[in-house]
Computed example of a mutant assay.
Amino acid sequence: MPGADGGVLGPRALGRALLARQHLLERTADGPAAVIGHLGGLQAQAAPQPPYLGLLARIDGFTPEALTGLIESRRAVRIALQRGTIHLVTAEDCLSLRPLLQPLLERQLRTTYGKRLAGLDLDALAVEARALVEEEPRTFQRLGAELAVTRPDRDPAALAQAARCLLPLVQVPPRGLWGHGGPAAHTTAEAWLGRPLAPAPPLDALALRYLAAFGPATAADLQKWCGLGGWAAVLGRLAPGLVAFRDEQGRQLYDLPDAPRPDPDTPAPVRLVAPFDNLLLSHADRTRVLPEAYRPRVMTQNGIVLGSLLVDGLVAGSWQLAGEGTGAWSVTVRPFAPLARADRDAARAEAERVLAFAGGHGEVRFEAAG
């Protein structure tokens, strides 16, 4: 019954629910546009591997051309959104989510560059920057240098970052395409997509989308995912149409009544999860899939989030695809503890699947556990 208390969910139950919604218990036959939309985008600041590998883990029969075609046809774009980081999203989400997350980006700008931008007419800067990037896509280095021509006392890098936060700048191809290189050049979403920004969706709608892909979840989880606050009030307002649970610490969890919540003992296949995957970045308490003891080994001090080996629904190691541009691909798997033979064989099969995706040639290496 909507609004009812469904009892306590332990980490294993929460993990299975998350994996089911992430298409990591069973791969989907849906196309990449549908999966990107369902997930609310894939984090994509490290070009080009994370979005491609993230979809490969989730979609049967996925090929690089399927996503490249979406990007080149402007049905998917890379833009700063959740947490102020670059995400690959559908064109529709780009146009609607950016206005909703604009306050977050402006807050980050004030926090990081406020002193260097003090006293500057930011409205005038935004107008000038828009004219420049809509004339021709520009890298931040070039944009900052051109904005500094009329502001010689200002830091060009800070000026470029101001433009990034004030304007909905998308990265244009070939940046981010599998097998292609290119500078991170930007223009506005409106110019690239040929449409104006859409009205921001209500927070209620965004909360429901989050629960569909990441629930059951707390208000703090929602804030961790997107960077915006105020979710306790939103979830409280939605509560009559939701089902409520508690975790083992007594925290209130909310979920959609009909969302999948598999039995905690449901088998979870071995998977290779992409670097920077939102599976690991979208909850305040990540222990449903990431044991705390392993968190520092996957999330490094310099902000890198390594590719993760999932065994029985939990991170059990890291992995890396190397060799781009050389033709000599390799997948290196680094288990954090010894793997059972069946799990090692499954990890090898997943790694060979990655190699086939990358080009069909290469080797799989296992480092010693530990």
Rank of each mutant, 00 (worst) to 15 (best):
G6F: 01
L9K: 00
A13N: 06
G15D: 01
A17F: 04
L19V: 12
R21T: 03
H23A: 10
H23M: 09
L24F: 08
L25T: 14
R27S: 02
A29R: 10
D30F: 05
D30M: 07
P32A: 03
V35I: 12
I36V: 14
G37K: 08
H38Y: 01
L39V: 03
Q45W: 08
A47I: 11
P48A: 13
P50E: 09
L53G: 00
G54K: 02
G54I: 00
L55T: 03
L56A: 13
P64R: 13
E65T: 08
A66N: 02
L67T: 06
T68Q: 13
G69V: 06
G69I: 01
I71K: 09
S73F: 01
R75F: 05
A76Y: 07
V77P: 00
V77C: 14
R78P: 04
A80P: 05
A80D: 06
R83G: 11
G84F: 03
G84Q: 13
T85S: 05
H87K: 08
L88P: 03
L88K: 04
L88Q: 12
V89R: 07
T90C: 14
T90N: 08
E92K: 11
E92H: 09
D93W: 07
D93E: 15
D93I: 06
D93A: 15
C94H: 04
S96C: 14
L97P: 04
R98C: 04
P99V: 03
P99D: 09
L100M: 15
L101S: 10
Q102T: 11
L105W: 01
L105E: 05
E106Q: 13
R107M: 08
L109Y: 10
R110Y: 00
T111W: 10
T111P: 02
Y113T: 08
R116V: 01
G119N: 12
D121C: 13
D121S: 12
D123R: 15
A124Q: 14
